[in-house]
Design a protein around this nucleic acid. Structure first.
Lengths: 181, 181
DNA sequence: ACATATTCATTCGTACACAATTTAATTGTC
DNA sequence: GACAATTAAATTGTGTACGAATGAATATGT
């Protein structure tokens, strides 16, 4: 019942042979960079959850508060740029923060299209309690700080190398997104 | 209206002073490793979206198919272990794949608690078309393969250093999860 | 001036992600 | 062989993520 599976496309991908029934192509799940990132983020979110629950926040809400603690009256668009989220994601998230009295949202009088998001007193006050979060998380990550910084810089560099628009030269660094060893 | 903000907790975090109104504590958003991971994954998912849409798959569905292409009759639990997802996430996802006729789900006769997930003919056939995905993605990531592999290994190592249970020694590598420069 | 285009946020629909709960089947223990 | 403990998925409820469509406000071109 096994497919023919001999359709080699155009020698475009370097891969290790699959252990299963002669079918080739596509690197294994555990060798793919993108899966590593994907599962790492899920795990990190799970790590943050109990710590942030004490503050009544989810991880994306915590990130939003971090952004607001940096600069407080801010438009939805500016927040979205900082967090790299679109307004369709932020609007309901901000409504939940508003329901918790951590922020207020109001139209910018100067430009009624914009919605200004601003910390409330309670929102600013939460910062003191949130100051313990990084330490709580750190004790759950048994890795030298230098390695963590190195990783952060590499992830950031990776982000900057993602081609947003379809410039599509598509010949350069062939199938190594999901690379084999 | 600015808060007192002079509540230094217990010299637990190394941080750079915030540019804003004297408030300290908590590293900036763009200096946090976890945010870098978080936003990188969102971007990667957006990159995959149009490519996978041609196959009728989302990114988590694609990962699930990758796992099944590696080993096909598999329990929901085994899939969840491979993908690091729980059944609450997997069950509806698998139902959608089943609706597309890519997989079938049936109870294991040997143990009626288990649900076996198996590729259909169409599911196996999809592999040939999916073989182009890594190359399509690679052309959107302008980075040397060696850097990508290095990053993958570092992310994987990072994952392995996350403390799942509350072993909580909590003194070692203080607040560097979200580190400052 | 004014029709057109653009911008900004909201709404809607689809699809994760996970904790907590529920249901069903199996295993241990006696 | 009954029955408590355990295990495996499914279900429920909350909260993201995002594309596409919507609608209101501002910018623009002639």
């Amino acid at each position: 019942m096994v497919l023919k599976s001999s359709e080699r496309k155009h020698g475009d991908i370097a891969y290790a042979p699959s252990p299963l029934d002669g079918i080739r192509e596509i690197p294994r799940l555990d060798q793919q960079l993108c899966f590593a990132l994907y599962s790492a983020v899920n795990r990190v979110t799970r790590l943050y959850r109990p710590v942030l629950a004490a503050l009544g926040l989810t991880y994306p809400q915590y990130l939003t508060m971090l952004a607001l603690w940096e600069r407080s009256p801010r438009t939805v668009g500016a927040l979205g740029e900082a967090l790299e989220l679109d307004s369709g994601t932020l609007t309901p998230l901000l409504k939940r923060l508003e329901k918790q009295n951590l922020i207020v949202r109001r139209r910018d009088p100067a430009d009624e299209r914009r919605v200004m998001v601003e910390l409330t007193e309670a929102g600013r006050a939460l910062r003191a309690r949130a100051a313990e979060v990084p330490a709580s998380l750190a004790c759950r990550i048994a890795m030298p700080p230098s390695d963590l910084m190195e990783l952060r810089d590499r992830v950031t560099r990776f982000k900057h190398h993602l081609v947003d628009e379809a410039d599509a030269d598509c010949v350069s660094s062939a199938g190594v997104v999901a690379q084999s060893r």
